[in-house]
């Protein structure tokens, strides 16, 4: 089988990092560290590339009058504001008061409000889930209900009893299920990663 250049890079670099995990060798360790330094820089480069792609897409929309122009303008304004606040001469970067203001006044409340909304959406999803009338959904909702009861913020004797039950439930049945899940997911992850590294199943894609 003829392997493409990117697939060869994946195999060689991936195996280098894996072998370095289990074999102590200064030469290997040096090569692995060099790869890690490159990956760290590349991950930051990927963020930069994402920003460039967003500017390209929405800047193009704005210039050509396509799509939601107001939305694109708002997005580009937000995208420009933070780097300007953190990169002007003399700026303290992320710790600059202007950046912290943008985070505290805009970014954090926007994300927090979205996450808070999810409580409502979850309730709606449960209602919709029951519309399909399957036993599986019933089991899931009953389990969710049991966990909620166990976490009710009650004091006194009831609270103490619930806390004892919650402690047992988290350690034994829930702990057992999630240990099985973690093991199962770890096996699946390991097998899939090995297939990628060995270029099985069209990893070139």
């Amino acid at each position: 089988m003829r392997r493409s250049v990117p697939a060869t890079v994946v195999v060689v670099v991936g195996l280098l990092l894996l072998v370095n995990y289990i074999v102590i060798n200064p030469l290997l360790a040096g090569a692995a560290e060099a790869v890690l330094r490159l990956v760290v820089v590349l991950a930051a480069g990927a963020a930069l590339a994402g920003g460039v792609a967003l500017v390209h897409r929405h800047g193009g929309d704005l210039l050509r009058g396509r799509g939601d122009r107001l939305g694109s303008a708002v997005l580009l304004a937000g995208l420009a504001a933070v780097p300007i606040a953190g990169l002007y001469p003399g700026s303290q970067g992320v710790a600059d008061p202007a950046v912290r203001w943008l985070v505290g006044a805009l970014l954090a409340p926007l994300i927090a409000s979205l996450f808070a909304m999810l409580f409502v959406f979850l309730l709606l999803a449960m209602r919709e889930g029951m519309a399909i009338r399957s036993r599986q959904v019933t089991v899931m909702l009953l389990a969710a209900g049991v966990v909620i009861v166990l976490l009710l913020p009650l004091g006194g004797q009831i609270g103490a009893s619930l806390a004892t039950a919650a402690d047992w439930a988290m350690a034994v049945p829930i702990g057992g299920v999630f240990r099985g899940l973690l093991i199962g997911v770890a096996v699946v992850t390991a097998v899939h990663a090995a297939r990628v590294l060995l270029v099985v199943e069209g990893a070139d894609d």
Binding site: G45, V74, G86, L87, V94, V99, L110, L114
Partner: peptide, 21 residues
């Protein structure tokens, strides 16, 4: 949502540039 996407990407670009690159 547009504002959130812009701010989040802008912040990511800032930390990537200033603290890594």
């Amino acid at each position: 949502q547009y504002l959130l996407a812009g701010l989040a990407t802008g912040f990511l670009v800032l930390v990537s540039l200033r603290e890594v690159l």
